[in-house]
Structures are given as C-alpha cells and as structure tokens.
Design a protein around this nucleic acid. Structure first.
Lengths: 147, 147
DNA sequence: ATCCTTGCAAAGCATTTGCAGTCAC
DNA sequence: GTGACTGCAAATGCTTTGCAAGGAT
C-alpha cells in the first residue's frame, strides 16, 4: 500500500525531527519492517529481513536505528529472562503473551484503564508513571498441542 | 531470627529435593539473602553480599544458584531493556514499579484477580497461562525530586 | 558547510561453559 | 561410591563503541 508507506514515512520524519535527528534510508527501512509485522523480532531478525531491501545495512546500524525508534516512541523494546530482546512496532496500548517453550510473543488487544493504572500507582508512593508492561507467560496453543 | 532461617532452609530443601537436586551451602546462602531483601539485586550484587558470609563462593556459582532457585519457583528473574537482570525472592503475587532513572525496582502490593487474568487469556486463543508480569515504569519519588 | 549517521572492526560486559576436584546423599 | 556441585578460567554471544567516510539539512 503506497499511501500507507508514505504515511509511515511522515510519522517517522516528524518523530525524528522533533528530537533533532535525521531521516535516513536505514531508519526508514527498519521502521517500515517493524510497523508491518507482529512477530516481535530480535535485532538480528530485523537485520536479516531489512538486509533483503537494503543489502548494505550493517547490524550495528540496525541496533542504532532500533534504539533511535525506541527513543522516539515509535517502538518498544521487550527483554526476556533468557536474555533475548525483541522489538514491537505497535504503539497503541496492548499486552503480550509469551510462550516459554518456543519464545513467540503474541499481542493481546486492549490496555489497562486509567483507573487501574492509578490504583497501582497509589501503592507506589510518589512514583510518576510513564508506562507499564503487562505480560502473560505460559505455553502457546501450538506448543501445548505438541507436548 | 533462627526459627525463620530454619523455616527457609526447609523450604529450600524440599524444593530442591522435589526436582532431584542437592542442598548446598552456596544455594542456601543465595536463597537466604534473596528472601531477606526487597532490593531486587542483580547477580553481581547477590555475589558481593553473599561473599561476606561465604568468602569462597564464585560468581559462576551465584549465577547457577540463582538459576536453580528460579527453576524451583523460589525466585523470579526480571530483565530490563538496559540489559540488566534482577532477582526477586518474593513468591507471592505482587507487581513492580521500576525507576528508569536510577534503576531501582519497588514492590507494589497485590495481584491481578483470577477474573482479570482470565479476561486477558480469552484474548490469546488457546494460550495456557502459567504466570504474568505487571510492571509500571517511570520516575521514583527520589529521582523526581532531584530533577 | 556543518555535524549527524553509517559501516566496519574492535571492544565490552553479563552470563555461560568445560573441566578437575570436592561434596552431598 | 556415585553423581551432582563448585570454583576457576576461558569462551560465548549480544550489544555498544571508536573512527573515518559519506550523507542530510
């Protein structure tokens, strides 16, 4: 969808400009991929995929681009107990469910209500809430069937 | 409290035995420290503290012991976007609030109700929920004041 | 023209692993 | 006595960094 891609590019340009950073092919390619998928890829997976569009891109640049996107609020970095880090291009409120067997991360629609967040905050004296993360862990349908 | 320590030791012995593992001084010392603090220490902080009781313990053993405790369900490993991993010796349901400035992790009392968890699960088709993690991110009172 | 960004290679750092000696059961 | 655990040191693997060349504004 051409129109959508242009929309994405505008979003990225604005976000970069707002923080005094420059628009580049590499950042655009990383952002385009991240906002087109729901697989929550690792940095290496982003690298491997983006490289098919932009053969010259380096892994270091992918790391830097991802960090830039996170800094702009256009992506979220998710870290897990097995040491893996994954990136999520969705910026609307939603939760995750992670399969501890195969590592897949699925989206769960919906967010906490402001009241629920506030109820939590009142239990953390003086804490200023910027965001939250709610994640189920367990076994996905596919792995449960295989076992 | 001598009685409490003995209680802890029994809990650890049972948990280890249940999974066919052995009770050792090192595991006991790591568990004793973890269940006595609410600072959510990193592996290195556990090492530095436990070493005052058990001067010979190695960092590798601390890592292995922590992983053993996590495997027994006596501790929870929390990983963060800056690459740090922290361990929590509390096993009752509760949440966390993490300061993105100083890195401190605070406990928030309470858990999600079974109904709330179920409501989330129904949105993840076929997923078998084993646990969840709910965490606020933001700025703690101390850091907010300093800024 | 300025200075931010890239790509490469080297460095960093937390964590894991191989192995011989030691210890729990 | 047997197999698991420890401590040490080396290795691993993801991520970051330094720097010269290139690119965006």
């Amino acid at each position: 969808m051409q129109a959508q891609e242009i929309g994405h590019e505008q979003v990225l340009r604005s976000a970069l400009e707002a923080s005094g950073q420059r628009f580049t092919e590499q950042r655009a390619a990383v952002y385009r991929y991240l906002s087109s998928t729901d697989v929550h890829p690792t940095a290496d997976e982003v690298f491997l995929t983006v490289r098919t569009d932009l053969p010259g891109i380096s892994l270091a640049t992918v790391y830097k681009s991802l960090e830039t996107l996170v800094g702009c609020g256009l992506a979220v970095k998710l870290t897990y107990s097995d040491g893996s880090a994954r990136y999520d291009g969705r910026t609307d409120p939603h939760h995750h469910a992670r399969c501890t067997t195969c590592g897949i991360v699925m989206d769960i629609e919906g967010g906490l209500s402001p009241e629920q967040v506030e109820a939590l905050r009142t239990r953390a004296d003086g804490f200023r809430v910027m965001g939250y993360r709610l994640e189920l862990s367990g076994v996905c349908a596919g792995c449960a069937e295989a076992a």
